[in-house]
Nucleic acid binder design. Sequence first.
DNA 1: GGGGAGAGATGCCGC
DNA 2: GCGGCATTTCTCCCC
Lengths: 242, 242
Amino acid sequence: MDYAGKIKNALDAGDVIIIGADCEVTYSGRAESFLPSGDRIVIIKSDKSLIVHQPKGTAPVNYMKQGTVHEISENGKNILLKARNSAMKEFMEIEFSKIHFVHCQKFEDDREIELQGTEKHMSDMIMKNPGLIGNDFRPLSREEHTKYGFIDVFGHDKDNNLVVVECKRFNGDLNAVTQLRRYVEKIKALKGIKNVRGILACPAISANALKMLEDWGFEYRKIEPPKHLERHKKNQKALDEF
Amino acid sequence: MDYAGKIKNALDAGDVIIIGADCEVTYSGRAESFLPSGDRIVIIKSDKSLIVHQPKGTAPVNYMKQGTVHEISENGKNILLKARNSAMKEFMEIEFSKIHFVHCQKFEDDREIELQGTEKHMSDMIMKNPGLIGNDFRPLSREEHTKYGFIDVFGHDKDNNLVVVECKRFNGDLNAVTQLRRYVEKIKALKGIKNVRGILACPAISANALKMLEDWGFEYRKIEPPKHLERHKKNQKALDEF
DNA sequence: GGGGAGAGATGCCGC
DNA sequence: GCGGCATTTCTCCCC
């Protein structure tokens, strides 16, 4: 079968291309890599991104980003795929020694995933229920991407201390504490004041992180991110009953 | 065609399963999500990990980790896949309204990718060429995962200052600076001394990060990670000549 | 299994 | 394009 021609046509048509094959992969760009011969799945999507999957693991072993230019040629009896992404200065070469199958198809999919339980949902919840942080906590604003930095929730307490809240949807770690510390220091410097409280809001915290948090005079609030997709309660119920 | 039976057999055999189908996906675990109906690629690998890909982008839209248990059933004329990962407390349900194709196959692949140009390669290079940090820099040891913490390169200068080097294979950012700062403070506390220098080694650094670095009295060294796979120079040359 | 950190991280948003 | 940051990050390594 003329796999090379089939792949070329699909590339021109903007189809999704799924290849099962024994192949080796060479990559050069942000780093360099070589993957010796073995059976893999190679997918070229309609946005010209490319992923190579081994038979184990959720992450692709090699990949090229959207907007890559693909060129099919033949090297003796092997098919050669050269992929180039000028913007990223990245190059890839896949040499197929045995193709098991090639499937090409137009894919109709204009829907986006609906996700619940992110850090943003957490800060939304805190804005609506400031008591989660403290009885006297008064949120002022959700300062995302402003001149004060990327602070999740920003407010003050009854003693007129400024309060910086950093949310983490999972376990708080050393990184989260240093991040909070950076924000508090930035606010202190910008405002020229010293009474700024720092609060880390997350469902759990590591012992080391808690120690560093307390050493720096910051506070921990045990808060869970909201995770229920209200629009799909029926489905959720079904999943819970597994 | 009996797609349900085909998938069940492949699951038992440990084959890789590739499905092209119109489907909707419900997920509940670390977060919750719902993906309305559309054409996707669903892959179940031999380690029972699962990925769902839309026709665009390199990252999967939904996934389950290795060791997931899969159960195929039929819901009227639709095929239902229930996936459960007890260890991760994660659940997924995929309802296939139209299956375009199912491909099952045993994959032979025992090779691992060879990668060059990582942060570890950078610190190796600095250990061999300490002059990259300074004429008087003397590396003592590569202290990874020891009592001193996760420090890339550790040494001293002719004035007997301890020197902590943090390597980044790409642009240095605020996070890299705060990380270096944490290490320097840890060494100071552990040793009870004050003369500890901090050096950030990376190919480039953001303006904000450089300012923070200098505010804290640390230093920047412009160093590129080594990126040549010596064993595959021939291939690399071919890629360069694209 | 948890903690800590790198990754060709990816993806998103804002400037 | 770069910068800063969340991510169902993933993966590795050590304790």
